[in-house]
Amino acid sequence: MNLRTQRKMAAKILKVGENKVWVDPENVDNVSMAIRKEDIRALIKNKAIRAKDTVGASRGRARRLAKKKRKGQRRGEGKLRGKKYSRISRKELWMKKIRPIRKLLKELRARRAITPTVHRKLYLMTKGGAFRNVAHVKSYIKEQKLARR
């Protein structure tokens, strides 16, 4: 039985493609008798004609990956794109390093844990790149006994 015209009409009414129109195999006779849009609408109401669900790509794998990435996994060397300093510039690295160290020195001076002279010395050393990070500065102060008692 050829239901081409009925499919076309149903597709227009349901606002889907012709391939997305599902015709109930048990009601094929009724559908083939439908020649007006009104008849098709009645069949849609009676669920003899329906629009198939749209099939999309499953997001399950993507969600699993995203979860792992949030945990910090899948971030190994194989995932790195670009050279070291194209990923984060030398200037940005420097700023990330220098700002916390300067903040620490400022706090130590404000708390009077170090003298202004020591502060100036450490500040200039920091500027010269003598320290790797805040912990390094603290250990240096401890080793050299630069803290006030």
Rank of each mutant, 00 (worst) to 15 (best):
R61S: 04
K20A: 05
T5F: 14
D53I: 08
K37T: 13
A57V: 12
P25F: 11
K15F: 08
R7F: 09
L14D: 01
N2T: 13
V31R: 00
V23D: 07
E18F: 01
E38S: 13
G17Q: 04
R36P: 01
D24W: 00
V16W: 06
R63Q: 08
V21L: 02
W22V: 10
K45P: 14
D29M: 00
V28Y: 05
D39P: 03
N19A: 09
D29A: 11
P25G: 10
G56C: 07
V16D: 01
D53Y: 01
R50P: 09
G56M: 00
R63H: 11
K20V: 05
K37H: 15
I40A: 04
A62S: 11
A48K: 03
K8Y: 06
G60W: 12
A57D: 05
K52I: 07
G56N: 01
K52C: 03
A10R: 00
R50K: 14
N27C: 15
R41I: 07
V31L: 03
P25L: 08
M33Q: 00
A10T: 01
V21K: 01
E18Y: 02
D53Q: 07
A51S: 09
I49L: 09
D24K: 00
K15H: 01
M9S: 10
D53P: 07
N46G: 13
R50E: 15
N46E: 12
K47R: 11
K8A: 13
K8M: 15
V23N: 07
N19K: 06
W22R: 00
T54S: 05
G17H: 03
R63T: 06
I35P: 02
K15C: 02
T54Q: 08
A62L: 02
I40D: 06
R7V: 08
V23F: 08
R61M: 08
K52W: 08
K47Q: 12
